[in-house]
Simulated assay, not measured.
Amino acid sequence: MSRYIHVLGALLALTAANVICVSKLQAQGPPTPSVSVAQPIAKRITIWDEYSGRFEAVQTVEVRPRVSGFVDKIHFRDGQIVNVGDPLFTIDPRPFEIAAESARAEIARARAQVALAMSEVERAAPLVKSGAVTERDFTQRSANLSVTEAQLQVTEANLKNAELNLEWTVVKAPISGRISDRKVDIGNLVIGGAQGTTLLTTIVSLDPIHFLFDTSESDYLRYMRQGLTGERKARDEPNPVLIRLADETDWTHKGTMDFLDNQFNPRSGTMRGRAILENKDQIFAPGVFARLRLFGGEADALLVPDSAVVSDQMSKIVFVVGDDGVVKAAPVKLGPIVEGLRVVTGGLNPSDKVVLDGLANPMVRPGAKVATQPGEIKTAAANAGK
Score class of each variant (00 low, 15 high):
residue 241 V to Y: 01
residue 243 I to L: 05
residue 243 I to N: 02
residue 244 R to G: 06
residue 244 R to P: 00
residue 244 R to L: 00
residue 245 L to N: 03
residue 245 L to A: 05
residue 245 L to M: 05
residue 249 T to I: 12
residue 249 T to W: 11
residue 250 D to C: 02
residue 250 D to E: 14
residue 251 W to F: 08
residue 252 T to H: 08
residue 255 G to I: 09
residue 255 G to N: 03
residue 256 T to V: 08
residue 256 T to H: 15
residue 258 D to E: 02
residue 259 F to T: 08
residue 260 L to I: 00
residue 262 N to T: 12
residue 262 N to G: 12
residue 263 Q to G: 10
residue 263 Q to N: 13
residue 263 Q to A: 14
residue 263 Q to C: 13
residue 263 Q to D: 13
residue 264 F to H: 09
residue 264 F to W: 06
residue 265 N to Y: 07
residue 265 N to F: 06
residue 266 P to K: 09
residue 267 R to F: 12
residue 269 G to A: 10
residue 269 G to E: 10
residue 271 M to D: 04
residue 273 G to E: 10
residue 273 G to N: 10
residue 273 G to C: 01
residue 274 R to Y: 10
residue 274 R to F: 10
residue 274 R to G: 00
residue 275 A to D: 10
residue 275 A to H: 09
residue 275 A to V: 14
residue 276 I to W: 00
residue 277 L to G: 01
residue 278 E to M: 12
residue 278 E to C: 06
residue 278 E to A: 09
residue 278 E to F: 12
residue 280 K to H: 14
residue 281 D to F: 01
residue 281 D to V: 00
residue 281 D to W: 02
residue 282 Q to F: 13
residue 283 I to E: 04
residue 284 F to Q: 14
residue 284 F to L: 01
residue 284 F to W: 09
residue 285 A to S: 07
residue 288 V to K: 01
residue 288 V to T: 14
residue 290 A to V: 08
residue 290 A to T: 09
residue 291 R to C: 04
residue 291 R to V: 04
residue 291 R to A: 06
residue 291 R to N: 02
residue 292 L to V: 03
residue 293 R to F: 12
residue 295 F to W: 00
residue 295 F to G: 05
residue 295 F to E: 02
residue 296 G to W: 00
residue 296 G to Q: 05
residue 296 G to I: 11
residue 297 G to W: 08
